[in-house]
């Protein structure tokens, strides 16, 4: 019972790794970069406003 189960778990784990690297994350990537860019621009906007009012 145990050997078979362990093999199956290992097999699943390997399959998962393979699947993960093949995931199509282009949409996620674009959205993450878009949000990151928004945060980046907002941060510098506030900082420049602060410096301008010094």
């Amino acid at each position: 019972m145990t050997e078979k189960k362990v093999e199956k778990i290992q097999e699943n784990s390997e399959t998962h790794d393979v699947d993960h690297s093949k995931l199509d994350l282009r949409g996620t990537f674009m959205m993450v970069m878009f949000l990151g860019g928004l945060i980046f621009v907002s941060w510098f906007g506030a900082f420049i406003l602060f410096l301008d009012r010094m």
């Binding site: 993960h20 690297s21 995931l23 994350l25 282009r26 996620t28 990537f29 993450v32 970069m33 990151g36 945060i39 980046f40 941060w43």
Partner: peptide, 19 residues
């Protein structure tokens, strides 16, 4: 780890360091 995950984690960490 997926290639894209490496990229966005690096960009996030880099931004935090810059701030």
């Amino acid at each position: 780890m997926h290639k894209f995950e490496k990229i966005w984690m690096s960009v996030g960490t880099g931004s935090l360091i810059i701030f």
